[in-house]
């Protein structure tokens, strides 16, 4: 069973936001609009966060693209009262939108604040509506439930189906989330962390590798390669 993980090379990332855009198109995340976004209601499964150190003129900025960390020890799934969110056998933390009661305990428990709540029924401008991803697995979520990055799990399912249809065994390289595929600077790597020969596994052991809030013991499966 693979243990999916991601490595993001901060040296290569130039914060073009194409991951954010690709994620939106792939996963049908609704458009909040500027007035709601300013209230903190934008739904961005993937976000590029500016991390600023120091003050002008001695300032150092790091751009940190932030998908879900898919922790091996996720604080969010522990608190779910109905197992609407759980870590599946391949280490991906997913949400069952049909079961979620909208208590938002998981959103509160996640130290990375990567979980999003549907404050309103999902909405898109007409032009975008025609380009929604038709995959039923990413059908727009109803209001009142929590949603989050799933490492584009629908792509994993489609890749498995495709491999089966073509009569070959599924390879880890068959599957790639939209943000990885689209990354302009090729800064993102994706694969099986348990496979010692995979690129992600090797990169995750790089001396440059670090994880966000590592000290909390959540064991994120998203690694960053330090700038510099």
């Amino acid at each position: 069973m693979p243990r999916w993980g991601m490595v993001i090379d901060l040296d290569k990332c130039f914060a073009c936001q194409s991951c954010t855009a690709a994620c939106r198109m792939e996963n049908n995340t609704p458009i909040a609009g500027p007035d709601q976004a300013i209230l903190g209601r934008a739904i961005l499964w993937n976000e590029v966060l500016p991390f600023l150190e120091g003050e002008y003129p001695l300032v150092h900025a790091t751009m940190i693209p932030r998908p879900c960390m898919h922790c091996d020890n996720p604080p969010c799934t522990a608190v779910c009262p109905v197992r609407a969110t759980y870590k599946n056998e391949e280490g991906i933390v997913v949400v069952d939108y049909q079961r979620c009661i909208g208590c938002r305990m998981c959103t509160v428990a996640c130290p990375y604040a990567i979980r999003y709540f549907n404050w309103f029924p999902p909405e898109w401008p007409q032009a975008l509506k025609q380009h929604l991803n038709p995959d039923p697995e990413v059908a727009p979520r109803p209001k009142g439930v929590v949603e989050k990055c799933t490492f584009c799990i629908q792509r994993l399912h489609r890749a498995r189906e495709k491999a089966a249809a073509e009569g070959r065994t599924f390879q880890a390289t068959d599957y790639m989330p939209a943000c990885v595929q689209t990354c302009t600077g090729h800064a993102r790597y994706f694969g099986d962390l348990d496979d010692p020969n995979s690129l992600v596994s090797k990169l995750s052991h790089s001396p440059r590798a670090f994880r966000l809030l590592e000290e909390l013991g959540t064991e994120p499966k998203v690694y960053y390669l330090k700038q510099g």
Partner: peptide
């Protein structure tokens, strides 16, 4: 406070 108050009984059916 619940986003889906009509699903409150999920706590009984699926409570963990």
């Amino acid at each position: 406070d619940m986003g889906r108050p009509e699903r409150v009984f999920n706590i009984i059916f699926f409570g963990r």
